[in-house]
Every structure is written in C-alpha cells, then in structure tokens.
C-alpha cells in the first residue's frame, strides 16, 4: 500500500529544481527595470564609499588655493572645485561614505527598536496598549521636528543625528511589524507550534519574525532613502555634520552663498542626494512587488 502511494506522489510532484527564496525574489526584482537602475546606483554608492581613498586624487579637505571655484569639467577636477579649492569629486565620494554609514546605522538601530516593540505589541495583547500609545506619542511629532528636538537636547553632531533619526524610525517600524505579527500569529502553524509545546520566544523568533520579513525588508529599504534625505536636511540646517565635513547636505549649505557664481557647488551634491534617495525608493518598491507572492511577473 505504502509503495503505491509513493509512486502516485512521484507523479504529482513536479520535477522542480530547488531554488532558495532569496534567489527567487532577486529574479523577480531584476525583471523590474527601475529597480535595476536603483540597484546600480546603490552599488555605485557602495563602491564609492568602500574604495573612496583609491578612486580620488585628493584629500576631502585638501585646499588648493590657486584653483578655487573651478567649474565642472576643469582639468584635473572633473566636477570642479569649491570656494576653498577643494575637489568636488573627492568630497562627493567621501560624502557617499558618510550618508551610507549614517543611513545604515540609523536604520539598523531604528529597526532593532521598532521590531522589538512591534513583536511584543503584536504578540502579547496586554503589552499592546502601552507600547502602541508610546508609539503614537512619537508619531505625534512631525519627524524632522522630533529629530531637531533630540539634537537640541543632545547637541549638534553627526552621532546625535544618527540617534535622532534612529528614534524617528522606531514608530513606523513598530506599527508595520505589529500589523504583520497580528496576521501571522493567527495562522494555524503558530497554533501547531503551541500544541507541540514551543516556548513563546521560540515561536516569535523562529516562526513569526521570518514570516514578517517581507514588510520589514521593504520598510528598511525605503527608510534608507528617508534617512539619507533627513541627514542631509539636518546638516543643511547646521544641526548635523559640521563643516568641513563633506556631508552632502553640509556641502549644499556651504554652496548656497555661491549659487550665482558657482552653481555646481550646490547642484552636484543635490543631484547625488536625489539619485540615491530615488534609488532606494525604487528598489524598495521593486522589493515590495518581488516579495509579494500574489504578484507574478510574466515569464
């Protein structure tokens, strides 16, 4: 009898090559042209950040006083120089490093806080009220104001910007995670684990969290865009990175006095910010579609 069943199942089972879910998602993602463009920009920024000293000829705060305010496409300075004679390309490359590091660190911290709160609020009904009211409280402040408030308390520095932006990422993340936990925990496989006698911690970490991964990944990617933009905004306002740091927002801020004579001082970092933010957003969009099992791309 048993052998009969097995043969029948062999027929039913499609001879499908095993492919990890990561590969499947990536395959779907690269069918989206915009997302591929975004991925290319992100990769470029990543390479710039990692290999910064090797791809530029100057130091970021090296001043060449006989070559100030050179326009774009000058000899030796293809993006020109600023009012102190610093090479714009060099500063742009080092700025990529700052915004990437700040972005990653604050997103990671924000996610850690948000995921923890979201899991607890979603899983334990009695904690839900308290945690979510706290989250609502954070939500009540407009984001950039909240960040400014935190910086006003802690003082201006790039580290404090990271802290401020991390805290600002927590409520959004907590809400998204809580929502997914609420839907995942009703699934029968969670009940099955309970009937096996699994501890809450095991259920939450091994079963609930992986099944909430999709919205978290999308949130993290989108959040990178917001974080980079906010870091620059705060630096532009003089609350974040201070001159002579080659932070992009600080560069725009420094360039605004020279808008008429040397517009490239603001336009170059401005375009860099725009491209990176755009890239993270479209990749986030692409990931959301790729991670959605109901969304099928034509083969």
């Amino acid at each position: 009898m048993a052998s009969e069943i097995v043969t029948e199942q062999q027929v039913k089972m499609k001879p499908k090559k095993k492919e990890s879910q990561v590969v499947q998602v990536f395959r779907k993602l690269i069918k989206n042209k915009l997302a591929v463009f975004g991925l290319m920009i992100i990769t470029l920024q990543l390479l710039m950040a990692i290999f910064a000293p090797f791809i530029v000829a100057y130091e970021p705060d090296e001043q060449i006083l006989e070559a100030t305010e050179l326009p774009i496409a000058s000899e030796g300075h293809w993006l020109g120089t600023d009012n102190y004679g610093r090479d714009m390309w060099t500063r742009l490359v080092y700025g990529a490093r700052i915004s990437l590091v700040v972005g990653i660190i604050s997103v990671v911290i924000g996610l850690a806080g948000g995921i923890t709160l979201g899991l607890l609020a979603g899983y334990y009904k009695r904690l839900d009220g308290i945690i979510m009211r706290f989250v609502d409280l954070l939500f009540a402040f407009p984001g950039i104001l909240l960040a400014m408030l935190i910086i006003a308390m802690l003082g201006t520095s790039i580290v404090n910007v990271v802290i401020a932006i991390s805290i600002w990422s927590i409520p959004g993340c907590a809400r998204i995670v809580r929502g997914s936990v609420l839907s995942v925990k009703k699934q029968e496989y969670i009940l099955a684990m309970k009937s096996l006698g699994a501890k809450d911690s095991r259920i939450i970490i091994k079963h609930i969290l992986p099944n909430c991964a999709a919205p978290i990944i999308v949130f993290a990617t989108m959040r990178m865009a917001t974080t980079i933009l906010s870091t620059s905004a705060l630096s532009f306002l003089g609350l974040g990175a201070q001159p002579p740091s080659p932070e992009w927002g600080a560069m725009i801020s420094a360039g605004q006095d020279y808008m008429w004579t040397s517009p490239h001082m603001t336009i170059v970092p401005g375009i860099a910010i725009m491209l990176v933010v755009f890239a993270f957003n479209v990749v986030g969009d692409g990931l959301r579609d790729a991670l959605d099992p109901n969304m099928e791309y034509p083969e």
């Binding site: 879910q21 699934q187 029968e188 496989y189 009940l191 099955a192 684990m193 009937s195 096996l196 006698g197 699994a198 501890k199 095991r202 091994k206 079963h207 992986p210 099944n211 991964a213």
Partner: peptide, 29 residues
Amino acid sequence: MQMIFQDPFASLDPRQRIGDAIEEAFIIH
C-alpha cells in the same frame, strides 16, 4: 497529546523546510 489541523496549507510554516518543521518536536522535547 497532539493535534492534526484542518487546513494543510495553513498548518505548515511557509518559510521552514518540512524536515525542520517536524524536527521542532524533537528540539523542544
């Protein structure tokens, strides 16, 4: 005391290999 569930599509964690799903019982007990 164990349970077999109604919906065979909902009672297995979609992100877990089935071997691991069964193995959980031994890990826990």
